[in-house]
Design a binder for these strands. Structure first.
Length: 472
DNA sequence: ATGTAC
């Protein structure tokens, strides 16, 4: 893949047929995916062929190989110009995302209560493949209420406070969810998983604010140096996975009829303005709301433990997805256009002044939450004005080695011992799952966020370090 | 990510 270095942190893949736009990779030279080991830059070029794509096919500094689209990819299509929506541009874990809670505790309080907190969280946070959930839904009607209402429905039912919703993307629920487009099989898989972490890179972590880079922004977010925080990373579990599977299958046989040809079967798509496009977006919104309710219920589970063990409160800083497509208006060449912005392993980062931000955050910009790999730092960033890539930035460290490679390279027991020796308490779901998340299977998250800032995508606000991890 | 292949 030929890359042209436009400036530090910015590499172009020149347009050549059948690409409709160039590719644009935001990364330091050191973070660029290794050719041969990872085909994600070919995927960036493939995405550039999609009907209606505008600007460029973008890759964030944590880009790596994914299903059809790269993880760490952003693509916007023009709805009025035959623009498509593609389930592969969202990912299997629809509205997977991160929520950050701020405790009224200081890290100096932690040594004496940390083990009690971790022992309280361990049984209170359902996790692992399949297995258990905080909430048992009565019937399909109640699941439909979750699919329509997301965190708003959870709060209505007493799982949270109204203030939480002001600190959620979309006020806690995406509009236009269409539960009728969610199959019975997806419903069956989702019925018993609302309020569960899942597995893989999902976690609930007790952290401390280790360094503040931007005091006014941190203060507006409700964060101060030394404060204890809780980060929750999870998604839409089996329900979101089934929605993706179902709608890829439904789109495949309709593509020729829409006159769409793509270089990779995994780029299955349909015009936003088509029956298949609308069906997917309705189901995707429903799965997104499921993921938001999931994070809201896990928040309540953590709150109960912090209250019982430490008499402490947890206030929501923000909840943001990094796997989602949204219909948004952006200026393209000075003209406002309705775009379907796919962010897959990429985080929306609204700039200061944006109308969709709550009043108290509007002067600063949207909080962007970046989880690191297990045992390493996480970051809080904020959006900046005039950024490229339709107000998007990175989402995490980004894998460099597969799950299988990682699982063979280290034993979970050894990894846990190393983490505990470095002051990180570990409550895992399985030894194998722990091993697959070894930090050396990931890029350096600090280098990723520095590249994202260097590329003009966002600004650093604070660094968080782990004290204890409840691992999916 | 995922009842890690219907």
């Amino acid at each position: 893949m030929d890359l042209v270095e436009e400036s530090p942190y910015r590499f172009r893949i020149d347009r050549r047929a059948p690409m409709r736009v160039p590719g644009m990779v935001f990364a330091s030279r050191a973070l660029l995916p290794e050719a041969g080991a990872d085909r994600s830059l070919e995927q960036v070029a493939n995405v550039a062929t999609l009907p209606g794509i505008v600007g460029a096919s973008y890759a964030m500094p944590d880009v790596h190989w994914g299903y059809g689209f790269p993880i760490g990819g952003v693509a916007a299509t023009d709805v009025a110009d035959g623009g498509v929506v593609s389930p592969g541009g969202v990912g299997f874990d629809i509205s997977c995302g991160v929520r950050l809670l701020a405790a009224d505790l200081d890290r100096a309080d932690l040594p004496r209560i940390r083990e009690a907190l971790m022992d309280g969280l361990d049984p209170a946070v359902p996790r692992g493949m399949g297995r258990g959930a905080v909430w048992r839904l009565a019937d399909r009607a109640e699941l439909d209420a979750v699919l329509r209402g997301g965190s708003r429905y959870a709060v209505e039912r007493g799982h949270g406070v109204t203030r939480d919703l002001a600190r959620c993307e979309d006020g806690g629920a995406v509009d236009d969810a269409d539960p009728a487009q969610v199959s019975d099989r997806a419903v069956q898989r989702g019925q018993g998983q609302v309020g569960s972490l899942g597995s893989g890179n999902h976690f609930l972590e007790v952290q401390a604010v280790d360094e503040v880079y931007d005091e006014p922004a941190a203060a507006a977010f409700g964060l101060r140096s030394g404060q204890v925080t809780v980060m929750i990373h999870c998604g839409s579990r089996g329900l979101g996975h089934q929605v993706c599977t179902d709608h890829v299958r439904a789109m495949e046989p309709t593509m020729a009829g829409h006159g769409i040809e793509v270089p990779d079967r995994q780029l299955a798509c349909a015009p936003v303005d088509s029956p298949q496009g609308r069906a997917y977006l309705g189901a995707m919104a429903a799965a997104a709301n499921y993921a938001r309710a999931n994070r809201q219920l896990l928040t309540e589970a953590a709150r109960r433990v912090f209250h019982r063990v430490a008499g402490a409160r947890l206030d929501l800083v923000y909840d943001i997805s990094h796997n989602l497509a949204k219909i948004e208006t952006h200026e393209v060449d000075g003209v406002p256009r309705r775009l379907c912005v796919h962010r897959k392993g990429a985080t929306r980062a609204l700039p200061p002044g944006h109308a969709d931000l709550p009043d108290d955050l509007r002067p600063v910009g949207q909080p962007v939450l970046i989880p690191g790999s297990m045992g390493t730092a996480s970051y809080v960033l904020t959006g900046v004005a005039g950024a490229p890539a339709f107000a998007s930035t990175c989402h995490g460290a980004g894998r460099t080695r597969s799950r299988g490679q990682a699982g063979r390279a280290v034993r979970g027991q050894d990894l846990r011992r190393d983490l505990e020796a470095r002051g990180v308490a570990v409550r895992g779901a399985s030894w194998r799952g722990l091993a697959e998340e070894m930090p050396t299977a990931y890029k350096d998250v600090s280098a990723v966020v520095e590249s994202a800032q260097g590329a003009g995508l966002c600004r650093l606000v604070a660094r968080l370090v782990p004290l204890g991890v409840v691992k999916g």
